[in-house]
Simulated scan of single mutants.
Amino acid sequence: MSSIAPWRRLLAEFLGTALLVTAVVGSGIMATTLSPGDVGLQLLQNSIATAFALGALILTFGPISGAHFNPVVSAADWFLGRRTGTGLKGKDLAGYASAQTAGAIAGSVLANLMFDLAPVTLSTKDRAAGHLWLGEVVATTGLLLLIFALGRSGRSAVAPAAVGAYIGAAYWFTSSTSFANPAVTIGRAFTDTFAGIAPASVPGYVIAQIAGLVVGAGLLLVLYPGVGETADTLVVEHPTPQGKRS
């Protein structure tokens, strides 16, 4: 487990999630402004900006907190590592999830303000349907498989590019446009823009994401029985020059 001070890790998770949602919401607003009437082009612009921003944010905050930005990733890290004493502890999980959710809401507020909108504009975009929930199960399961497979195989260094690429692709191959993140889902309810989700649709998405967590964790235990031994790779402590503080 990382020796970095807990408050620093929580701040990194708050800031990283906030900036991720700012990128998602802000690029959606910009896309609808630049390409009015062309939803396909808007989604392309939104997905590319999100993928690039996510990769950059993982590089920025990963050395401090592991750059989870997602309660599902944090919960999987806790669950898979609990038997081997690796990964997040229970109290860390609660802190991470709280910081991520608060950060996601702040990110929507920031994006709204940057584009001269009211700070909070609750979304009216209904996303409640069975096929969308199935898309969230698929998106979340795939995200967990990717992240923990990279850690188990010693390839965590490529996570920024790989995770960004996966989310960018999942925008297009899932019916739900791949939220795959309870905190981000909640945050996106606070903006009535391209990337928004109506508050009434949030519970269905979150339940589907939790289902994806269960499926993903189960598959990881089958495919990589020793996956818990490397859970600490998702809470990364960065190397520092000798005699320097991290």
Rank of each mutant, 00 (worst) to 15 (best):
R152M: 00
L11H: 00
E13T: 05
S153D: 09
L93D: 01
L44Q: 11
L223R: 10
G103F: 12
S175K: 09
G95E: 08
V39H: 10
A128E: 04
V235C: 05
H238R: 13
I207H: 00
G103W: 10
L234F: 15
P239S: 11
S178H: 12
I186W: 05
F173S: 00
S123K: 09
I4F: 07
K244T: 13
L93P: 06
L20A: 04
I48K: 00
G16Y: 13
L19K: 01
F14A: 00
A169W: 04
P160V: 09
F14K: 00
A159G: 00
L20W: 12
R82L: 12
P71L: 07
K91M: 06
A104L: 08
I210S: 03
R82W: 14
A18Y: 09
D116P: 01
S108Q: 09
L145M: 14
A180I: 10
V120T: 03
F173R: 00
A104C: 07
R127M: 15
M1F: 09
T240A: 15
N70R: 10
A111F: 13
A31H: 11
F52D: 00
T17S: 08
R8L: 14
A129I: 03
Q209G: 07
S156F: 02
T193Y: 02
V24T: 08
L80I: 11
M30R: 12
G28Q: 08
G28S: 08
G95I: 05
V137N: 07
I58M: 05
